[in-house]
Simulated scan of single mutants.
Amino acid sequence: MQVRAETTRRFLLETAAQLFDERGYAGTSISDISTLSGRTSGAIYFHFANKEKLALAVVEEHFATWPELIGQAKAAEVPALDRLVLLSFIVAEAFRENVVVRAGARLWMERKAIDTELPPPFVGWIETVTELMEEARTQGTLAAGIDPGSAALSVVYAFFGLHTVSDALERRRHIESRLHNLWLLLLPALQAEPGPAALLERVGLVRDRL
């Protein structure tokens, strides 16, 4: 019984995520979710007290995807800067392919319209990128004079800004190409011995093995 309930809850969450991603929070109703899912409104309310709680669940699931992706990148046996770039491509793929990730991002951007407190964004990303920058400095691959914390903040700003623009202009269809170009711009400033094309090629090979 518990397994069935969890399966139903997940199905409803993913259905809601599809509509939140396409229409936004204000443009999605419980009735819309009921129609798309084929479940009654009562069934939805059994699992989620209201639309706000459903939106919160989608955002929480969005954040819950990150630890596994971060672990996947950190486990790669390559230098820290390579792992940082690898992580960015892993996340880009998640944004493109995972509707819950996309919906969670959109809902957080629309948070002022949602009458519930949502988890704070980006904090974990800033910490993770800072750790990788500090490791790169220890390895001697980070350019002299680069402060890991400040650089991490700038990279996070650039990365998620790229996602926002790519989503608005092209629904992230070319996100990996845009990300590749962003790293060609950023890496010469970050690397102790600039070689952005070679690093991106190495990361591509690692991605092919994942």
Rank of each mutant, 00 (worst) to 15 (best):
M1D: 07
Q2N: 11
T7M: 11
T7R: 15
R9C: 02
L13R: 13
E14V: 05
A17R: 00
Q18S: 12
Q18G: 07
L19R: 12
D21T: 07
G24F: 09
S29V: 05
I30G: 14
T35W: 07
L36N: 00
T40M: 00
S41V: 08
G42Y: 10
G42K: 05
F48L: 11
K51P: 00
L54P: 02
E60T: 05
E61M: 06
F63D: 08
T65M: 02
W66L: 14
P67L: 12
A76P: 04
L87M: 09
S88A: 15
F89H: 13
I90D: 10
V91M: 10
E93L: 06
A94E: 14
A94V: 00
R96Q: 15
E97R: 12
E97D: 15
A103D: 02
A103T: 05
A103N: 06
A105E: 04
E110I: 07
R111I: 05
A113R: 12
L118R: 05
P119M: 12
P119W: 12
P120E: 14
P120M: 13
V123D: 13
W125I: 00
I126H: 10
T130Y: 04
E135F: 03
R137W: 09
T138F: 07
T141Q: 09
T141V: 14
L142C: 01
L142I: 00
A144S: 11
P148V: 14
A151M: 08
A151S: 14
L153E: 12
L153F: 15
S154R: 12
S154D: 04
V156L: 09
V156P: 07
A158M: 13
F159G: 04
F160L: 02
G161T: 00
T164M: 15
T164E: 12
I175D: 08
E176F: 00
E176Y: 00
L179G: 02
L184Y: 05
L185E: 08
L187H: 11
P188V: 06
P194S: 11
A197W: 01
L199A: 04
L200V: 06
G204I: 04
D208Y: 06
D208L: 12
